[in-house]
Design a protein around this nucleic acid. Sequence first.
DNA 1: TTGACATCCACACAAATGTGTGGTATATAT
DNA 2: ATATATACCACACATTTGTGTGGATGTCAA
Lengths: 202, 202
Amino acid sequence: MKLFVKITPKQQRVLDFIREKVNKDNLPPTIREIAAACGFSSTGTVRDYLDALAKKGYLKRGNNKSRAIELLQGNPQKLRLIGAIPAGTPNEAHEDPSDYLDLKQLFSRESARGEVFALKVKGDSMVNAGIMDGDIAVIRKQPSGQSGEIVAALLEDNEVTLKRLKHLKQGAYFLEAANENYPPIEKEFTVIGVLISIIRKY
Amino acid sequence: MKLFVKITPKQQRVLDFIREKVNKDNLPPTIREIAAACGFSSTGTVRDYLDALAKKGYLKRGNNKSRAIELLQGNPQKLRLIGAIPAGTPNEAHEDPSDYLDLKQLFSRESARGEVFALKVKGDSMVNAGIMDGDIAVIRKQPSGQSGEIVAALLEDNEVTLKRLKHLKQGAYFLEAANENYPPIEKEFTVIGVLISIIRKY
DNA sequence: TTGACATCCACACAAATGTGTGGTATATAT
DNA sequence: ATATATACCACACATTTGTGTGGATGTCAA
């Protein structure tokens, strides 16, 4: 899949119409609606445009489904997800669903059950785990965690903290920071959930 | 059109399925897709449900148009966002709208200003900036960046890398890793965008 | 000159799709 | 009693819709 493929003015016009329809009606147009709007007399022409735009990564098409046009750029819900560019042939258009990051689906399963909340991280006690001051930690609510998992825990003073949970042989637990300047917490604490995601905004 | 009309459990089930489809695929379902999902053997049954839900103001229907179902009572996908010093346990409900993280709006502003894409981070060259192997970097496409900003850059060998951009006095630039094991990159490179967010899933 | 790409067309066809008609049954309110 | 709403079904039908096939022309790089 090529990265930044230029789009021709005519392709831009087709794309603009689709975007306009989606924004206005919340419903992508059919092939014939595009043809009528852009002045094409053949459905095949529109199909060629859609295939070209899909190949360039501007939209995604469904198979044999009406109106199955999904915009990928200028649409914050779904982002193109690229890995390291393989040196050689970077121009295949493969329909790998893992090529896209769907923001709506990021936590859809968990949040549908209503057991997810977000926690703003304060301090640098987890910097060595890549968790920085100001990060947003997404937590799935649950009363315990496995050893090594990063959990949100409620301390005695009603403060919520993010630490790595460690099990001891005797069934005891403690909380370990990912920063040598912070001592482990062995006092009483309650696990309120496990970390499932970190979101940071710059 | 009446609002706040009660709907029956079965109507709720149909509505939930539509909402799920719209959130997941950005495409409303067809009548027959609803029938299959909700266990109806007749398309007429679904039409009756859609008419009932439309009459109650929960959705709007188009005429003779496929998938023309427009939800009128949306569900913003929001997460409770609590700070590090909560006034109580996160189980308590305090309904401040600023206490919610709206996933749909996470990158709406940035994507309005330009194209946004996601890049899967490879390697540990930015660990000291809290960016780890496997993280998803959200990049706003732009051809340059300010000194100190973390940018995605295209190297000579067509590899995309994430580094901190540094300006020199003479108008020259170089890329600096956030890991002392990696030397700065002063060879030819092209900035393709600036980092606006990091997303990590556990 | 070959190939890839862009830019169009016409027409056919199967499948998908919304709608229409005519039922059955239960419950509830007027 | 009558009307209204809910909750289904089967089947037919006309359209809508995406796709397939087979062209055409031109540009541009290798």
